[in-house]
Simulated assay, not measured.
Amino acid sequence: MPHTSPTGTPSKYASVLRPGLFAGEVHIVTGGGSGIGRCVAHELAALGATVILTGRTQEKLDKVAAEIREDGGQADTFAFDIRDEDQVKAAVAQMVEKHGRIHGLVNNAGGQFPSPLQMISKRGFDAVVTNNLTGGFLMAREVFNQSFQKHGGGAIVNMTADMWNGMPGMGHSGAARAGMANLTKTAAFEWSVANVRVNAVAPGWIASSGMDSYGPAMAGIINQLKHNVPMRRMGLEAEVSSVICFLLSPGAAFMTGITVAIDGGAPLNSPIFPLADHAPSTTYEGFHRAVLPKALQGD
Rank of each mutant, 00 (worst) to 15 (best):
A91E: 07
Q87L: 03
G265P: 07
A261S: 14
S147D: 00
N228R: 04
A238D: 11
P10E: 04
L44I: 08
R18F: 14
G100V: 07
I28P: 13
D162H: 06
S147Y: 01
G33T: 05
A217D: 08
G72N: 15
G257N: 01
A181T: 15
F137Q: 02
E285K: 14
A290Q: 05
P168N: 03
L292Y: 00
M180E: 10
Q112C: 13
N131R: 05
A238S: 15
V29C: 06
A79R: 10
R289D: 10
R177G: 11
M170A: 11
W205M: 11
I52R: 02
P116Q: 14
D84F: 02
S249I: 01
P216G: 08
D263R: 02
A279S: 04
L275K: 10
T160H: 06
G73I: 13
P230R: 08
T184M: 06
S281T: 09
N165F: 10
E190P: 13
F287Y: 08
V229M: 09
V128H: 09
I262G: 01
H27M: 13
S34I: 11
V106Y: 02
G100S: 04
G169E: 07
L247F: 09
F246L: 13
L248W: 04
H103Y: 09
A261F: 02
P10G: 05
I221T: 13
D263E: 14
G73M: 01
V143N: 00
N269P: 07
A175M: 05
A187M: 15
A161T: 15
R177S: 11
G104R: 12
A23Q: 15
A188I: 15
M231I: 14
R232A: 09
Q149H: 02
G73R: 01
T9W: 00
Q94D: 12
G104Q: 12
S115R: 07
T30W: 07
G152A: 12
G110P: 15
G174T: 03
S281R: 09
P230Q: 07
V51L: 01
A46T: 12
C39K: 10
P280D: 05
I222V: 11
A75L: 04
V157A: 01
A175L: 11
M163H: 01
R289W: 05
P114D: 09
W205F: 06
N182L: 04
Y13D: 15
H99G: 03
P2Y: 07
M167H: 07
K12N: 13
R232C: 15
A175F: 09
R289H: 07
A93R: 02
Q74K: 06
T30V: 04
G215E: 14
F254Q: 00
V51F: 02
P168V: 03
G169Q: 09
D263S: 05
A140Q: 00
A93F: 02
T9Y: 05
H227R: 04
G37V: 15
V143L: 00
S34M: 15
